[in-house]
Design a protein around this nucleic acid. Structure first.
Length: 569
DNA sequence: AGGCCGTACTG
DNA sequence: CAGTACG
DNA sequence: GCCT
């Protein structure tokens, strides 16, 4: 099932608003050309973190123009903190309610925040600014330092930087009382300007300085790992209103088209490109500009240019008219009918759902899929998801009050409506056998008797089976809904939460990342030391790294924690 | 040129 | 086994 | 389709 189209979740990046003005005017932020976005991928947190002060406001705008994101809350993704001159290090810590900030790079004194004393041991001040420094001063170590290193493939973490900024307001001249920059080529620039200039002079963001300073290893983020979608926050929103909104809509149609056609790789590429384009803060209108975005290649880049020029895509118009395609499309929306079956039906000359019902040989599941074609292809409002979940929960608690039911899928990601109802069932301390027995032998029969569960589409038969797929129907309704139960022992809860929350792209990204690290991620846990065959059939299952705690799986993979609503890729 | 997630149920 | 499905 |  294609991922539910993005529920709105609030972006952590606040809006730059016009001072007063009526309506929702937004200041025009003109991003610098892409190759000059020296802050691309960095997340700034200002202190104070509002744009009410004109000087700070200017700095925030400038930071964004150079590619930074402005975080409205201090969180794990923040890479740099920019502190106003009026505040010192202690005030910052107090406000953030932190004992300390894990500084990563304290070697550059230009921008050191007042009141910060570097540890005595690491007296590495002498270095002005390394020529290749693309980041600014006082780097911080990751916040969650406790992360146990569970895998042998230790990688790096995002570095946090702490930057002092001038509150010199509009004049842009440095205020007194700050350590003199060792070199200030231009008196009219404040610290941020300086940082921008110095970063510009240096090489782009790619510089990989693994310098050891007195035996202290220092790392910056893993560039290769950054390319995984799971490393980035996705709310799935901001496409409806962003500068590329229309292009995104058309590309999404193409992605859907390839999805329906079951051209999984093209579909994947389009979704990848869409995700990348959605994050762009400026309108992409030429092939050249599009090509520079990671995830967009020449083919899609050409299409982007065509979409912008002509407002639509000829290829898509054509595809929409293709009759056979429409038929396949129609058939594949039947539960239990994939490309293969759809092609067979179409080749047999069937054109409508009714044709199938009357003439085709159908499996039991396909028949159910047809009988409830409209039901299964309509969205379930969030409130109704809760009703279905409530019924299951109540019935299960009646059998054993220790059971826990979690509503998963797009519901957990905050969606306002879902394609189906996903319920995770567990009981602390119970074995999977006990849970399976209770659910399969007691809960399902009970709810079936009460006419809540109305069809079984796929139910576990294996000894280690853990799922039940079927349909449910509310007492006062005639609409059948797809409902999935996942049975989980407590030890696997974290991995199951991860899997069952999705979305699918996010899961695949996490799993691919795991495999690149010699590990394996599935709905039961994260495993390491997986031996793979040449054709990478796995020879050993690997040893369990983590299964119980969702957060620890992120940590073990060195992926910053993302709440469910940020897993919409 | 070859990878692109890893698993579980159906028939 | 291939096909379909789940996130 | 895109990326290595």
């Amino acid at each position: 099932m294609p991922p539910s189209s993005a529920p709105p979740a609030s972006s952590a990046i606040p809006m730059i608003k016009n001072k007063k003005g009526k309506g929702k005017q937004v200041v025009e932020i003109k991003l610098v050309p892409e190759d000059q976005r020296i802050f691309q991928g960095l997340h700034f947190y200002f202190f104070p973190n509002s744009d009410t002060h004109p000087g700070r406001r200017q700095r925030i705008i400038k930071a964004i123009e150079y590619g930074a994101s402005w975080q409205d809350k201090f969180n794990d993704t923040v890479t740099h903190i920019i502190v106003d001159r009026d505040y010192d290090f202690e005030q910052l810590l107090k406000y953030l309610k932190l004992k300390e900030l894990p500084l990563v790079d304290t070697s550059t004194i230009e921008f050191r925040v007042k009141g910060y004393e570097p540890p005595a041991s690491s007296a590495t001040i002498a270095q002005p600014i390394p020529s290749q420094a693309s980041e600014v001063s006082l780097q911080l170590k990751p916040v969650k330092r406790k992360a146990v290193v569970l895998s042998s493939q230790v990688t790096s973490e995002a570095s946090l930087n702490l930057v002092s900024s001038s509150a010199a307001s509009l004049s842009n001249s440095p205020a007194p009382g700050v350590p003199d920059p060792q070199q200030v080529p231009n008196k009219d620039e404040d610290e941020l300007d300086t940082a921008i200039r110095q970063a510009k002079e240096s090489h782009p963001l790619a510089s990989d300085d693994e310098d050891d300073v007195e035996g202290h290893k220092r790392r910056k983020t893993n560039n290769w790992q950054d390319k995984f979608q799971c490393m980035h926050k996705h709310t799935g929103k901001s496409g409806d209103q962003g500068p590329n909104a229309h292009t995104l809509v058309v590309l999404q149609e193409l992605a859907d088209h390839y999805d329906q056609i079951r051209d999984q790789w093209r579909c994947k590429s389009y979704r990848q490109a869409i995700s990348a384009l959605r994050k762009q803060t400026i309108k992409i209108s030429t092939k050249e500009a599009a090509m520079r975005v990671y995830g967009i290649g020449s083919s899609i880049a050409e299409k982007i240019e065509e979409i912008v020029r002509t407002t639509h895509l000829r290829k898509l118009d054509f595809a929409k008219l293709d009759e056979r395609q429409q038929i396949l499309n129609r058939f594949m929306k039947i539960y239990g009918v994939g490309l293969h079956a759809a092609e067979n039906f179409a080749s047999a000359g069937y054109k409508t759902i009714d044709d199938l019902l009357q003439k085709a040989e159908l499996t039991d599941n396909q028949r159910i899929g047809i009988d409830h074609y409209d039901d299964f292809n309509s969205r379930v409002p969030r409130a109704e998801v809760e009703k279905h979940a409530g019924i299951v929960k109540k019935a299960l608690k009646g059998l054993d009050k220790n059971y826990i039911v979690n509503t998963m899928g797009s519901y957990r990601r905050g969606a306002q409506d879902s394609g189906d109802i996903d319920l995770l069932i567990t009981k602390p301390g119970a074995s999977i056998d006990e849970i399976r027995t209770t659910v399969m032998d007691r809960l399902v029969p009970l709810l079936t008797k009460h006419k809540f569960l109305v069809a079984a589409l796929a139910q576990t038969s294996q000894a280690d089976g853990t799922k039940w797929h079927g349909a449910s129907c509310l007492p006062d309704s005639s609409t059948w809904r797809r409902i999935d139960l996942l049975l989980v022992p407590e030890e696997e809860l974290g991995a199951a939460l991860l899997y069952f929350t999705g979305n699918d792209i996010f899961n695949r990204s996490m799993r691919l990342l795991a495999s690149k690290k010699g590990m394996r991620l599935n709905q039961r846990g994260l495993y390491k030391d997986v031996l793979r065959d040449y054709g990478r059939e796995k020879l050993s299952e690997g040893t369990l790294v983590e299964g119980k705690d969702e957060r620890k799986i992120f940590e073990a993979l060195d992926v910053p924690w993302r709440p469910p609503e940020h897993r919409i890729c």
